[in-house]
Write a protein that binds this DNA or RNA. Structure first.
Length: 456
RNA sequence: GUGGUUGUAGCUCAGUUGGUUAGAGUGCUUGAUUGUGGUUCAAGAGGUCGCCGGUUCGAACCCGGUCUUCCACCCCA
């Protein structure tokens, strides 16, 4: 019996129009990546589980899609593990592979494996799908694309500056103006935790602080208390909740708070350097903002952290993120290689462009001219014309059968074809064709001998 | 992973305290118009009411399970 087909939770099919729009975004990103000197690589869809596990924190591990071993995998499990019925101990023994969760960790693995072939500093970009066993929501899928650009083997803060410019260039070229690149520094967060005496609870502290503009000061303090951060520590952190003014003013307030923390001051210094350099160079459409509450969850970041929000008025999670990680390759045995990178969330950018109606009008135009078919003889002449047009890079096609003209016009209309060419018996006799502009409805006769592309 | 929400024609949605052949708009096909689309008019096709089970003489409607959607957490692109 035929069953109704379906696709798994959090996955999608893409229609021709959707693919065209996605390609527009990918093309723009790729173009800018290459203009900035990044080189493309690709890595497998799945990695060995041990490569991925433990890199994204406990929460991340839970969201990694694990791939069941092949063969008679259950018989190879020892009786104790098998009868314990604990997924956490059984899973590693029957799932030795897992779908990649992001592009950064596989990249770190790539760098370590190919360290002898790579010319450092290495600037690579990668545009591939990733998978997360998350519960889907709007702008949140189980299969989605990331577009990453990373630089490894360079400590200079100019890399951070360049990545901010890259964000600006991509979003400007996509026509998405007013994006906000929020920046913070992991060292500043560590410094704060140190100064207030909550060094051990850094992660809990930053996760709570991150929610400030979402749930408000009182709720954040409540959460901090419940995580075991003392009342006095929270009081010491009070200036954070009242942070205001320009970036320079905020940095001054931070300096007072962090004057006793070497690490904190180092973070401030980095932020200053990046901010002033970006200011000097200028941005086209994006805004770079300092946000001390920004605390990206991934624990491999060590320096600057970035997150990009859509322009005001669009409700969408971050459409990009990144930061510096000083020791990601260390996990795989390559020490002292600093990396910094950013990621673009293709699927979310798509939703934002769609919501703001920013896709170019012709982006999904799959055909520029359709020749109508009036029978064998006329069609042959039309095919000759179509070939000429195609040679000149014009997307042209001939309607395959000589059905009713009305039907052929309707097809052209539905395909959103801007021009229709008519070559019937009369036109053929006069060695002409009629070019009709579908939007205006106007039409004119042209000679079949002339260069057809001159009519568009 | 926790709590909630949604599912009826290709699409957007109605649907009476459970009662014969489940509706609308839009889209689709055909004709008015045998060489002119987007407007109009007429006719027609299209649905195992997400899926499985239960209650009932009888279920789109009530109950249970399951899948899916979206939302809030969690986390994140």
């Amino acid at each position: 019996m035929a069953q109704k087909p379906s696709i798994p939770k959090g996955t999608r099919d893409f229609s021709p129009a959707e693919v065209a729009k996605r390609n527009f975004i990918i093309g723009t990103i790729k173009e800018q990546f290459e203009l900035f000197g990044f080189q493309p690589i690709e890595t497998p869809s799945f990695e060995n589980s041990e490569t991925l596990l433990g890199k994204y924190g406990e929460e991340g591990d839970r969201l990694i899609f694990k791939i069941l071993n092949s063969g008679d995998f259950i018989s190879k499990v020892d009786d104790v593990t098998y009868s314990s019925k604990k997924s956490s101990s059984l899973a590693p023994k029957i799932t030795e592979k897992a779908l990649r969760y992001d592009l950064t960790v596989p990249f770190a693995r790539y760098v370590v494996m190919h360290q002898n072939e790579i010319d450092f500093p290495f600037k690579r970009y990668q545009i591939q799908p990733v998978w997360r066993a998350d519960r889907p929501q709007k702008g949140r899928f189980r299969e989605f694309y990331q577009c990453d650009a990373d630089i490894v083997g360079a400590n200079s803060l100019l890399q951070e500056v360049e990545l901010v410019q890259l964000y600006d260039a991509v979003f400007t070229n996509l026509g998405l103006e007013g994006t906000i690149v929020k920046m913070n520094n992991r060292k500043v967060l560590s410094g704060i935790a140190e100064v207030i005496g909550a060094k051990q609870l850094l992660v809990d502290f930053t996760v709570a602080l991150d929610k400030l503009d979402k749930i408000g000061e009182d709720k954040v303090k409540e959460e901090m208390l419940s995580k075991g951060i003392s009342e006095s520590a929270i009081t010491k952190a009070a200036p954070l909740f009242a942070m205001a003014g320009s970036a320079t003013e905020q940095l001054e307030q931070l300096e007072t708070l962090l004057q006793d923390s070497e690490m904190g001051m180092a973070g401030i210094h980095e932020l200053k350097k990046i901010l002033t350099t970006v200011e000097e160079l200028g941005l086209k459409s994006a805004k770079l903002q300092l946000d001390v509450t920004l605390a990206r969850g991934l624990n491999y970041y060590t320096g600057a952290i970035f997150e990009v929000s859509a322009p005001n008025g669009v409700t969408m999670g971050s459409i990009g993120g990144g930061g510096r990680y000083d020791d990601l390759t260390g996990i795989f045995g390559l020490k002292d290689v600093s990396g910094v990178g950013i990621s673009f969330g293709l699927d979310r950018i798509y939703l934002v462009l769609e919501e703001l109606n920013l896709f170019p009008k012709a982006v999904d135009q799959s055909l520029q001219v359709l020749c109508l078919n009036f029978g064998q003889k006329e069609a042959l002449a039309a095919l000759k014309l179509v070939s000429k047009l195609r040679e000149q890079g014009i997307k042209a096609d001939l309607y395959p059968s000589a059905t009713k003209v009305q039907k052929q016009f309707k097809y052209a209309d539905k395909r959103n074809v801007p021009f229709v060419i008519i070559i019937g018996a009369e036109e053929l006799a006069r060695n002409e064709f009629i070019l009709k502009d579908m939007a205006s409805g106007g039409q004119k006769s042209c000679s079949l001998d002339d260069n057809p592309s001159s009519f568009f």
